[in-house]
Design a protein around this nucleic acid. Structure first.
Lengths: 232, 232
DNA sequence: AGTATACATTAACATTTCATTAAGAAAGTT
DNA sequence: AACTTTCTTAATGAAATGTTAATGTATACT
């Protein structure tokens, strides 16, 4: 009937990795095991997973770096970190990147299983459409959010920075509608406070500069609420 | 800005509960503290929360029982359990009930905060059913309360301030009917006293100025009672 | 190692928006 | 008439936003 959920497990300790993989397999998950961050990222790109379990401490490319790369491509897939005991800093970094959970080694396998179930049982992510759209036309512009390039019909192309790119994408996806400040902050900056908010304002200013080439486009502010990309 | 997220905290240890509540309050959450499961359930039913933090070990009614009761009424609100030691059984039971996470005491407050943020930043799956109405037509006007824009058929658009917007929305929702003063005051100003009442008068005056473009519309005062938006 | 580059954050200052309060006039109530 | 409530405009101060520049902070390059 329903095909098993698939998990990407990235763990450098071959013994432990093997055991964990077997345990999860017995419990009806399809597990793909990678032994370091580099291999992990390759596997991640080769197939579709429902969940990633990443060891933080790994040679070549650690779990946090790998997580960042994964998040650049996919900002919905759940991430669980494995961390050695009491590395609070790693845990906090993990959450900042967008982790869903973490476990400190050694951990209880049943609890891991419960966590996995809990995470996978959440409402299936609604935005089916949002997933693959990365090219947009609006005003005199073409915008490729995968390549992070914004092109004006007549002339210039701009290479957007990651943050510029994310913010513009959210604005475009909400074209002519309100993009609430909090939503953008929590999605792009993963935190909403005074400083991230100021940072967002700076990026709005940058985007306005780009969009200035088409005088009909405007990013207007709704005081206290957010921003709205519109064409008059 | 936007209103804070609210948390129901159920914890029988008064000292610890107090400290935790204060800590969360400092971090911009509205926290309601209950000292046992019974009080917890009452508070849960009395108002709307965004998240519950439940101590498992409590007299009278333990956290797991409380969680079950909450889940009977509401199957989406996130639950976080606090468990004394690593009582694996409790943790597993918790997940079975539908917990989102757990923390073993003593835990690090920063990590709790990170978890809360992570959980609350997940898809706002709550109001799928109740789609908020935010666009209205009345007289010669179109009113979009989400974008806070009031547009006259012929001509101008007005950007409304948050208070103007809320007040007009309440008037429109009670079109041709009385909007009692204290209802509006308590909803918009969260308080009804002499000064907020003066402030409301100022906003009524502002709205009248906007609506003046359509001579058939009037905001009339019902002395001592409130206001009524009507069309003759 | 040092240096260049790209990027994000923070600082600083200007500007705009907003809510409240004041104050005097007008209208309603008794 | 005496009193209360409402009406309206303007003044004030606080908060949010706009913008440019300076400061960090990684990473790649030499």
């Amino acid at each position: 009937m329903k095909s098993n959920k698939s998990i990407l497990l990235v763990e450098d300790d071959p013994n432990f990795g093997r055991i964990l993989k077997d345990y999860l397999t017995i419990n009806n998950y399809d597990v793909s095991l990678a032994v370091n961050g580099i291999e992990g990222f390759e596997k991640f790109n080769r197939s579709e997973f429902d969940l990633c379990i990443l060891d933080i401490m790994m040679p070549f490319k650690d779990g946090l770096t790998l997580a960042r790369e994964i998040r650049e491509v996919n900002d919905v897939i759940p991430l669980i970190f494995l961390t050695a005991k009491n590395l609070k800093d790693d845990v906090l970094k993990g959450y900042k990147i967008g982790a869903d959970d973490y476990l400190t080694k050694p951990f209880d396998s049943e609890i891991l299983l419960a966590k996995i179930k809990s995470i996978l049982n959440r409402k299936p992510n609604v935005n089916v459409e949002e997933k693959d759209v990365f090219e947009f036309d609006f005003g005199d512009f073409n915008f490729n959010s995968k390549l992070r390039i914004l092109t004006h019909k007549e002339g210039e192309s701009y290479k957007l920075s990651p943050k510029e790119n994310q913010l513009l994408k959210m604005l475009v996806l909400n074209f002519d509608d309100l993009l609430p400040r909090d939503i953008a902050l929590n999605k792009i900056w993963r935190d909403a406070n005074y400083f991230t908010s100021r940072s967002m304002d700076v990026y709005i200013a940058k985007l306005r500069k780009y969009l200035d080439k088409d005088k009909s486009l405007k990013i207007i502010n709704v005081h206290g609420e957010g921003f709205r990309l519109m064409q008059e």
